[in-house]
Design a protein around this nucleic acid. Structure first.
Length: 589
RNA sequence: GGCCCCGUGGUGUAGCGGCCUAACAUGCCACCCUGUCAAGGUGGAGAUCGGCGGUUCGAAUCCGCUCGGGGUCGCCA
């Protein structure tokens, strides 16, 4: 080993020790006589002092430049009191070299490694190996490692075994678009990369594994977003002989542990609050609410049930809803703010955003003149509005009201500074419907996945009113993002066929797509369930970033390609021929 | 696929019709300097303003197309 100690680990207790350190020149301060070099490695930075009296070492220090790689043999020395740097972890010590070796010289890097400056993301990704040297980038990658290690150790300790599943699997047309991999052995046939190991982990349960987990890569060939990439990683987990509460308890313990370990004091509440799906939708308009703040949706339909105001009357007559959000102390919101909120509501599908500002005896509202005093009083009492409060209202179909007011609520959370980055507000959402109606396709579709089970009490509803049947699904949300979701699965063939049938699959289609599961269900299968929990988003939350690429060592760019490796690329005609493929059009450039 | 934003020395920005022979900071190079830690000082090199075309007497600046990047809707759990 060229080094026996990490630069970043040196402390006053090491004073007097002979050490061998090695790392990158982070910064160099040349005083003509004395030269200071801050040497950086994976654990941190330490100052090395070169004195002209040691001519050989001093000459190396004089030549050395940023990002050169040096090995230093020397002695750790406590700094004198007036030269201690309290801003550095190693600031009370320095290394006095006896011998210095240049392991590698370096070009001037294309961007700053030693300063936390915003750099064009594509440039960072193209030189990701340099970007990874930046302490603030390395920190997040290290955090990710520590979190995953925590998960592994937690699960090992509870009897889970880690099993790998294939990444070349069978394509299924539903869900997201598959990444396809052509088969050379069977031209014209394709593998797909898994969107998740869902079926495979169920088969592991059927195979008697009982407690499985995997840090699993999942692929979806869909457009990216700031928090969405084509390949993401999830903690995939499945357990046999359990019910919903068992899985939730395990996951809650895991995430509580992670939060306490990596963000001490940030946890808003334990145990995690439970929200029933219907209640959650009613109060927040979304199944993954940000619970760091209130601003809940309030149903005010009863207060205006007989209103002459066309917008309200029309919405109710069409089977719609009227809901409001009370914004404390914001009756004096500027016209511009109101317009901007209205735009947000329109983005959610609403045709407008009505408002009433309760400013003492006067009302600040363009709709007040259409409402009776009793109706205004009803709105006020239902929302709990006090003088100085603003109430914003959307009247429309339930889905529109939910979506638009959710977006207004989220926007208000940001504008009013209610999204405290120092808080982790976890919650469970349960009681999801098993199925939802797809009007365009005129069929039922699984809310979660088609293997999701349901309580015995719901069975009759599958025949009479499938949309009302509740499921054994549970989602874990945190600060407005879904961090994980799972279910207790169906574990008998007839129920599974029943659900597939409702989803509009013929027997043949069922057998073709899900025959493995259906057949396996006839050979003795345990009640089982599990979760899939997104790791990238969890790390984003813990690290406080809103860019998913920050938490991935080698991410794809937003445009879907990899600026580092230059992929994707065209391939040789010979490669295509071998696969039995012909291009419909020549690749551009 | 739609919409929005961005593209100026190595990096980050300013300039938004003639004062630009393109500015500032930092980095880079050289020299001076023995306790700094974003070291300091002096001097120097470095961009035809993503590309193409157009408008204009004149374009980094206006217009069109195009390429690249980011965000978002669609899509996606």
């Amino acid at each position: 080993m060229l080094k026996d100690t990490y630069c970043g680990d040196l402390r006053p207790a090491d004073a007097g020790r002979a050490v061998r350190i090695a790392g990158w020149v982070h910064r160099r301060r040349d005083h003509g006589g004395l030269i200071f070099i801050d040497l950086r490695d994976s654990r941190g930075i330490v100052q090395v002092v070169f004195n002209p009296e040691d001519a050989a070492s001093h000459a190396v220090a004089h030549r050395a430049r940023t990002e050169w790689v040096l090995a230093v043999e020397g002695v750790v020395r406590a700094r004198s009191a007036e030269t201690v740097n309290p801003n550095m972890a190693t600031g009370a010590v320095e290394v006095v070299p006896a011998a210095v070796q240049v392991l590698s010289e370096a070009l001037t890097p294309p961007f700053y490694i030693n300063e936390p400056v915003e750099v064009d993301e594509q440039l960072r990704l193209r030189y990701r190996y340099l970007d990874l040297r930046r302490p603030e980038v390395a920190k997040v990658i290290y955090l990710r490692h520590e979190v995953v290690r925590f998960m592994r150790e937690f699960l090992y300790g509870r009897g889970f075994i880690e099993v790998e599943t294939p990444t070349l699997i069978k394509s299924t047309p539903e869900g997201a678009r598959d990444f396809l991999v052509p088969s050379r052995m069977k031209p014209g046939h394709f593998f797909a990369l898994p969107q998740s190991p869902q079926i495979l982990k169920q088969l592991l349960m059927y195979g008697g594994v009982e407690k499985y987990f995997q840090i699993a890569r999942c692929y979806r060939d869909e457009d990216t977003r700031a928090n969405r990439v084509a390949e993401h990683t999830q903690l995939d987990l499945e357990m046999s002989f359990v019910g919903q509460e068992d899985v939730m308890a395990l996951i809650e313990e895991l995430y509580t542990g992670i939060a306490q370990r990596f963000r001490p004091g940030a946890l808003a509440a334990t145990p995690f609050p439970r929200l029933d799906y219907a209640d959650c939708m009613a109060r927040y308009g979304i199944d993954r609410p940000d619970l760091r703040f209130g601003l809940e949706l309030v149903d005010i339909a009863d207060a205006v049930r007989t209103s002459q105001f066309q917008v309200f009357a029309g919405a109710l007559a069409a089977g719609g809803e009227i809901k409001a959000i009370r914004i404390p102390g914001k009756a004096d919101m500027t016209r511009k703010e109101i317009d901007e909120l209205t735009e947000v509501a329109r983005g959610g599908g609403a045709r407008g955003l009505a408002y009433i500002g309760f400013t003492g005896a006067e009302l600040r509202s363009p709709i007040a003149k259409f409402l009776s005093p009793e109706e205004v009083a009803g709105i006020r009492s239902r929302t709990g509005a006090e003088d100085g409060d603003m109430v914003v209202i959307v009247a429309d179909q339930p889905a529109v009201v939910a979506k638009s007011l959710h977006e207004v609520r989220t926007e208000l959370g940001s504008r009013l500074g209610l999204k405290d980055a120092g808080v982790l507000s976890f919650a469970w959402v349960t009681g999801f419907p098993l199925l939802e109606w797809r009007p365009e396709e005129e069929r039922w579709d699984a809310t979660h996945n088609p293997f999701c089970g349901f309580p015995e009490s719901e069975r009759a509803l599958l025949d009479t009113d499938p949309g009302r049947a509740a499921s054994y699904q549970y989602d874990l949300v945190c600060n407005g993002a879904e961090v994980g979701g799972g279910s207790i699965r169906i574990n008998n063939r007839s129920d599974q066929e029943r659900v597939f049938g409702l989803m509009g699959y013929t027997k043949e289609e069922q057998q073709d797509r899900f025959g493995v599961v259906l057949d396996a269900l006839e050979y003795g299968t345990p009640p089982e369930g599990g979760v899939g929990a997104g790791i990238d988003r969890l790390i984003m939350t813990l690290a406080g970033t809103d860019n998913i690429r920050d938490v991935i060592a080698f991410p794809k760019a937003s445009s879907g390609g990899d600026p580092l490796m230059g992929s994707p690329t065209p391939v040789d005609a010979a490669q295509l021929a071998e696969l039995g493929l012909r291009l419909a059009e020549e690749p551009s450039r």
